[in-house]
Every structure is written in structure tokens, then in C-alpha cells.
Amino acid sequence: MTALFEDLLGQTRAVALLEASLVKGRLAPAYLFAGPDGVGRRLAALRFLEGVLAGLQGDAGIRRRLQEGNHPDLLWVEPTYQDKGQLVPASKAEELGLARRAAPQLRLEQIRDVSRFLSRRAVEARGCVVVLEDAEAMAEGAANALLKTLEEPGEGLLILIAAKPEQLLTTIRSRCQQIPFTRLSSEQLAVVLERCGEPAPTADPPELLELAAGSPGGLLRCRQAWAALPEGLAARLLDLAAAAEPLQALALARDLAEALDAEQQLWLLGWWQLALWRRQAPAAQLQRLERLRSQLRAYVQPRLAWEVALLELAGI
């Protein structure tokens, strides 16, 4: 491994493929960085682009500009929410206090911007470069527009980052060189957390470690989600017993829908499923929670979806 990728831990195969492209000077028009969230895909994209722009020896100035997002030949695109006619990047939604009632998307207008950016003349590099985060979050129209761009890539370079590449169009995947990323071992997880100045995972609840599944970024998000839960809400879910009072189940559904946004509800549902599985809950209960997950993702009214599910699970 060259010094360029020395801070990317546990991704030997991905680094080997990226280094081979740089050494041979044979870059694919598009790459698909596929693997779990939070295991270094974003860092790998930054280091790879640094290698594209400055060579394997790297360049501190270019590294800083890429990380700050102010390189003139780089366009970094992430899913957005729509708010009052404006597109709000997912990373800014919480900071702006945006109500996140639906999942963010990569939208048609964003992909059109990508196509225009890739077709323009680069300022400093040989060609413009674009990174699409959470590429599986593309709406259908956006995916079709991206496919047209991939069919005529020009001199630009496109990197797609996806945790669930199977959700992308097969024709999109076939036009990208896939770079696989894997989960980290517990030892590697601890090292990455230490480098980030974060506490070691030894004190985390076991469910959080299992949900993170070898992803440092995933564990940090789990910690944040766990800390943000209203006091006692998770315990009320676990204490929901068969033959519970209907008002108890309905009150819990109300509090879940009112206190948590869409992403928080889905995260808590995943935690609840895991907690019930660890308690050896009946398969029918776990299947009912999976149906609830599908309903929440399909934008069914959250409170109604929770009410029906909790009443059924309580045997009412």
C-alpha cells in the first residue's frame, strides 16, 4: 500500500484495485464503490481523486481542497430533501432543523447538473470529476438520466458510492468498475475510533455493536441515534406485551410518530427487531416488524402504521 492510502484501514482489495488504476494510468470512466456505510468509501474516494489529480505521491494542498470541497474540477453530490421549493443536502437537514418525513433522494435536476459539469472544460485537471454519494437513492428519472451520461462519459470521471448496489439499475452497474469494500474486524473498528478521538466500543450496548456490524461510521451514527431517543421510549417498546391495553399501544404509537422523524423511526425499528431476535421472539413478530418497515419506507402515514402494528403485536 502506498502512502496515499495509508489511513484507509482494512480495505486491502479496494486499495489494490485503485492503486493499479493509478499506476497503469488506465482510469475507468466510472467507478462503483460498493460496501457498507461508514467503512471508508468516502475517504477512499478522496484519496483516489487526490491520486488522479496529483499522482501516487499525493499532494497536501490538493488533499485539503478536496476535503473542503473547493476544488474547481470536483462536484460532490448527495441526496437531498425538498423544502419550500429548494433542495436541501441530507448532511445539512438536521443543522437547519428540517422535518425529515421522507427519505432523501438524488433527483433528476441533480443528475442534469452532473451531466453539465462533466461535459465542461476542466480548470486544473485533465477532466472534471463527480462523486455521487448514496447512489442507490436515485429516483427513477434520475437513474435513467445518469445512464445516458454513462453512455457518453467524455473526459470526466464519475464515482458512485453505494451501500446497496443491487438497487441500482443493472445497466448502470455494468458501466462502472466495481470497487468492493468490506466490514472491519473488531480490532480495526477500535483503531479507527481511536484515530477519530471517539470512545472505544467496549462500553456500547451489544445491540448497537451488532447494528454497526463492523462499521465505525455506523457505530457513531448508532450512538447518536441512541442518545437522541426520548427517555424511556425504547424501554416502552420492549415492554409492550401481549394483551396490553389498547390505549397503551396507541399512546406509544403517537409518541413514536411525533417524537421521531422518518430516519429515526426506521433506526429504532431496526434496533427493536434485533432486540426481539436476541430474546428469541416468535418469527411472526419479526415478520410483522419487517412489514412495518416496508410501510414506513412507502410513506404510509407513520402514526397509523405504528398504531396498527403495535395493536397487532399486543394481541389486541
Score class of each variant (00 low, 15 high):
259 A>H: 11
283 A>Q: 13
280 Q>A: 15
276 L>R: 13
265 Q>A: 12
283 A>I: 07
256 L>N: 11
253 A>Y: 10
281 A>R: 00
252 L>H: 04
278 R>A: 13
257 A>Y: 01
280 Q>K: 15
270 G>K: 02
252 L>Q: 04
263 E>T: 03
254 R>G: 09
281 A>W: 05
274 L>V: 06
273 Q>S: 07
281 A>L: 01
250 L>Y: 04
250 L>A: 11
283 A>T: 10
256 L>Q: 11
245 E>V: 03
267 W>E: 04
278 R>D: 11
277 W>I: 09
262 A>M: 14
262 A>L: 15
269 L>P: 00
274 L>M: 06
271 W>T: 00
246 P>D: 04
271 W>E: 11
254 R>Q: 15
248 Q>C: 10
272 W>P: 00
271 W>L: 14
266 L>C: 02
253 A>K: 06
276 L>N: 01
280 Q>T: 12
250 L>H: 04
259 A>R: 15
256 L>M: 10
274 L>D: 07
250 L>W: 06
280 Q>G: 10
269 L>R: 01
271 W>S: 04
269 L>K: 00
281 A>P: 02
263 E>F: 00
254 R>N: 09
272 W>M: 07
283 A>P: 00
274 L>G: 09
282 P>G: 10
254 R>F: 07
279 R>K: 13
269 L>F: 03
264 Q>V: 08
257 A>D: 09
255 D>S: 12
270 G>D: 15
277 W>V: 11
262 A>C: 15
269 L>G: 04
275 A>M: 08
254 R>D: 13
258 E>T: 15
268 L>F: 13
268 L>Y: 13
